[in-house]
Design a protein around this nucleic acid. Structure first.
Lengths: 363, 363
DNA sequence: CGGTGTCATGACATCGATGTCATAACAGGA
DNA sequence: TCCTGTTATGACATCGATGTCATGACACCG
């Protein structure tokens, strides 16, 4: 690889002059500038980041860690929205700020994080983005003492700035849309209990009901997310069974994510219940592969991964330019409600609308 | 950040001795070693990659470019298997070889590739992996003259080593499984015409038929992939209409990808045709979010993205260690056939098995 | 007991940029 | 004309590692 010295010799000037041409930080005569440019071109010269960063003590590098799944390594890849979207959102912003992202994937092994951080430190990254695969609390402090950090899709107890989805607000807005269509009995198939998203969205769900003066019926809420494992379908089947085995069955079903909604579509159809004519269904995530392929297309709350990535990158850049950390360490990002065909007004009770339970337990 | 000089002073030795402790490349007395280790610990010393790579003229860095989608930026994200899997496969291998991946996403703008490559060159990457979002030919040569390159999921006309999926073999094996179940009339809803995958898989499809002595009926083949755009469902509907409006309707349907299979499930059910009792359905990709959530679970051919990423990384590493380029520039990676519930033996014709076309055009 | 080899360590130069300072040429103002 | 200021350029040191070479202290061999 050609160096600045090669260019200098080729152009008959000193290395320092080449440097000046490169950085345009001091006047250079037009004639010299041209000669140097020609030499750089002829030699295919590209300045060395290593040498530059050594002198300037700046790396223009930002580290990003993804995929720190607690245990199983495949489950989460299969289940949710790919956190790649977060990475893309962050990268777009970083690129505009002339930072290069160093991206590392733990491949599911949380215990590799210290190694990754060490590699980042060798590269003298100026900051680190830590991306979780779903909204969760972080138990341990990340290594890398003095490096500014921003958490994405997770948060800790040490006041590290964190960018998370507005699960409460998202489910609230979505539920409000459902209610606005006239639904009063709304069932909710939640994600696994104990998850942050489950807790927050349930709060949003209840807030919407409450504001509308609708009662909250615990019998209409059940956790059914088994991450796509075999028993899941039966679990959903049974849950729907319970919902509809009632004098006042639900007219709409909220699902913890779009994948669950997909299973619900299939089970309802298998039982002769049509969506949306007899029951409206809404999801969560706006995983477009599902939401736009289902028929009718799925009304769902967007999980704004890309926007979260972008926001987190911006927060980190602010920190790097010496600004204070945000006043509240936890920044929530709201996604839109995507209105599609699966949500319509409930039909008035009529013979057509009697829900057929004949297929029960036929799974 | 502490430097090797700081550590040396703190431990009362010369920088060179610290270096020896770091690299274990020359004998150091146990007492000194401990003192140095203690100093490194106390100061939180991490060696500077920049300084190292400058001296050694090695960066241990490999660049990876993804997302070079030709035009539309969202279409492909929504449609296929996320190419993130390729990246993960590559990263796992690179990490074992102590290489760090510099990952850049074009965000869909092919014209940004030269900039990304330039950044890679500044970092003195030792090689570049170029990852396409679906199997396709590359029109232009990549910039970066003397840097070893490996293409993944794409190929060029200049003999650059390329790792691609074995589309022909994958569809062949899948179709063979279908035939092995006893199916003789097999329909095929292909991806968009003109795509590499479409062409190759059709070859594999025909080879399997031919080997089994089954006739190839062009009327049973239709391209229906519109990348999830609105008209797609109608297109599939019409195609199925044509297939079943026949004295000898198909007993199995191959789909160009799992997403199409999902739409097919839904349309068939809407028309009262049950899967797999009346018609078997198979997909392609093994996008587990779909293949495992559909009911019955989808038999499909795996698109071995992770393995392709790993293989490409290995090829690049071989190139870097001075080995010759692989004899054939194009390396194909075969995926498995994933057998699940959507494929069963065809039922003998019976009253139950009469396919009901009453729902036709009711979409 | 002198010679040779290994151990343990340090001085110094070097990698490729750039910041600092010096220098020369020339212009314009007093 | 001399002084000052600007333009245009180069010499040199420096960033943080490590390769090369030198040196002193032992140990072992004949």
């Amino acid at each position: 690889m050609a160096t600045i010295y090669d260019v200098a010799k080729h152009a008959g000037v000193s290395p320092k002059t080449v440097s000046r041409v490169l950085n345009k930080d001091a006047p250079v005569s037009e004639k010299t500038r041209k000669a140097v440019a020609a030499a750089m071109d002829a030699l295919g010269y590209v300045p060395s980041h290593a040498a530059r960063s050594m002198k300037s003590n700046k790396s223009d590098l930002v580290g990003l860690i993804t995929g720190a799944i607690s245990n199983a390594d495949e489950i989460s890849t299969a289940a949710g929205l790919p956190d790649l979207l977060i990475v893309q959102g962050a990268q777009a912003v970083m690129e505009k700020a002339n930072k290069t992202l160093l991206i590392s994937d733990t491949g599911g092994r949380l215990d590799r994080v210290p190694d990754l951080v060490r590699t980042f430190q060798e590269h003298r990254v100026e900051g680190i983005l830590y991306v979780a695969d779903f909204h969760k609390p972080l138990q341990l402090a990340l290594p890398g003492r003095d490096i500014p950090k921003v958490l994405v899709n997770c948060f800790d107890q040490f006041g590290t700035p964190a960018v998370v989805p507005d699960d409460e607000g998202g489910q609230y807005a979505l539920t409000k849309s459902v209610i606005a269509q006239g639904h009063e009995r709304i069932a909710y198939l939640t994600l696994a209990p104990g998850q942050e998203a489950t807790r927050l969205r349930l709060l949003g769900f209840r807030r919407a009901l409450e504001e509308a003066g609708l009662p909250f019926d615990p019998k209409l809420v059940q956790a059914t997310d088994l991450f796509g494992t075999p028993g899941e379908r039966q679990l959903i089947w049974d849950a729907l069974d319970n919902f509809f085995d009632s004098d006042t069955p639900p007219t709409a079903i909220c699902c913890g994510n779009d994948r669950l909604a997909m299973a619900v579509y299939s089970i309802l159809r298998g039982r002769g219940i049509s969506v949306p004519e007899q029951v409206s269904v809404v999801g969560y995530d706006d995983h477009r592969l599902i939401s736009e392929t289902l028929y009718p297309a799925l009304t769902t709350a967007e999980l704004p991964y890309s926007a979260m990535g972008a926001r987190a990158a911006q927060v980190l850049l602010d920190l790097l330019s010496g600004n204070d950390a945000p006043a509240t360490p936890r920044i929530t990002v709201r996604g839109q409600v995507k209105t599609r065909g699966s949500l319509v007004a409930p039909r008035a009770a009529s013979p057509d609308n009697v829900i057929n339970l004949s297929g029960r337990n036929e799974i």
